[in-house]
Computed example of a mutant assay.
Amino acid sequence: MRVLLVEDETDLRELIEAGLKDAGYAVDAVADWPQADYLLDLTPYDCVVLDRMVPSGDTLRALDGRRRAGWSTPVLCLTALHTLPDRVEGFRAGADDYLAKPFAMVELVMRVGSLTRRAPGRLPVHLAHADIELDGARREVRRGGVLLSLTPKEYAVLRHLLVHRENVVTRTALVEHCWDEMADPMSNVVDAVMAGLRRKLGSPQLIRTVRGHGFLLGGPAGDGA
């Protein structure tokens, strides 16, 4: 899943970005609304973590404008403006959740997860294929009932393959959904993560490489090549 973070304080932005990435999210982080507005027109995000007061002003006006235009991406307002009137104003402008600073990173991650799970049209919490089961609420993966220890990127890649099971998923699609905007689709990052994921999933191998196209989560494929 991909999250857009809008936070003008550099240290806090880097801290939140690292925390979300550790939880398995692909994160694009910007310092002001004009940058966010540009990215929102280019990328389908699963959630936006939005600081209210940024250099260009209070972001609630921009949020309200997008909501009136039909934009439905879940938004978590993260701000020092935490009085009851502030929170009411945020919800009226279209925020789905509101978290006051200072905050605990674990709570932020859980709130982002909750927003992405319950939003209309979002993907199911539980995904399965063959004997692989993914529990999005607990961020757990089992094969044959055995709990697997996956890295955040391995989890994100497997989840995307499960969502699109029986269809070929390109490297570019994986980078767009599982990495941030700085990732290079031509690099070997996808192959490195895929190799680790295949090794942890074990045999029989279910992830096939479709040469010249991408990857397919299907039936057993021998050595996975």
Rank of each mutant, 00 (worst) to 15 (best):
L4E: 03
V6T: 04
E14K: 13
G19A: 12
V27H: 10
V27A: 04
A31T: 01
L40R: 12
D41W: 00
L42Q: 15
C47P: 00
V48P: 02
M53L: 12
M53V: 13
S56P: 11
G57F: 12
G57Q: 13
T59I: 14
L60N: 11
L63A: 12
D64I: 04
R66M: 12
P74T: 10
V75G: 09
V88A: 15
E89Q: 14
G90S: 11
G94F: 15
G94I: 04
D97E: 15
Y98P: 07
Y98M: 12
P102T: 13
M105F: 02
M105A: 01
L108P: 14
R111C: 13
V112Y: 04
P120S: 08
V125K: 14
L127A: 03
A128W: 14
D131L: 06
E133H: 14
R139W: 05
E140R: 13
S149H: 09
V157S: 02
V157G: 02
L161Q: 08
L162F: 08
V169P: 03
T172S: 08
V175K: 07
E181V: 11
S187G: 09
N188T: 14
V189K: 05
M194F: 12
A195V: 04
A195Y: 04
A195Q: 04
R198F: 01
K200T: 06
P204K: 10
I207Q: 06
R208I: 04
R208A: 15
V210M: 10
G212I: 01
L216H: 13
A225D: 11
